[in-house]
Amino acid sequence: MSEAAPKSVLALRERTPLPPALVLAIFFHLVIFAAAFYLPRLLDRPPPMRKPIIAKLVALGKPRDKSLLPRKESPPPAAAAAPVAAPGGKAAPSTAHVPTRRELMERALAHAAGRAASEEKPDEERAGQKTGSPQGTAESSEAGDVYFTAVHDAILENYVVPSVISERERLYLSATVLAYIGGDGRILRHDLQKKSGNPFFDQALETAIRRAKLPPPPPELARSLRDNGVVLNFKP
């Protein structure tokens, strides 16, 4: 009696059930990929994100006694404003400064952009620190992420909220924009991910993004900002 021809290895493998461990591994991989794909959509909210600290430069001034009534917040002097004498230093020479053609042009451009220097005198009692900077914006300093502070300040400089939006509406208006930044600092594209519901407000933040001149990102951030973008949460 001849024995049946031996089964090929391939045939044997076809009939052999997969090891349970392999099946489980395939199953778990499928679950992981499915979860990675669907979970963010199911949760319908952005995944955990990193919140950079926006640096604040302490203003030059005197620390204010907390028991006194507050002073009006005064903006930092504009670049085109007259120089302020350093504390304790000699007063600036009284000879009238004749503005150069370039200065005149810068002033005109600043005026056209609504950034003209305030006509009010600089506030000598401005709250701040004696070691602060004339360009400071806060009563106390806060160290932060240099590049994102620059992005924040560049957009804020162009962020103009129209006054037709009522104070009450300003309390709850918010919008989210996802902006992708190129290696040269240009905003490559932006998506209004969450509209505010007020067309005047949405228009204002689109304008702020369009006009903002951002510095080029540092090399370690360039790829992420180009591919993943940065989330901008706007509130009035």
Partner: peptide
């Protein structure tokens, strides 16, 4: 998506 978030 590891995105920085800036509040303005």
């Amino acid at each position: 998506a590891d995105r920085p978030v800036i509040d303005l």
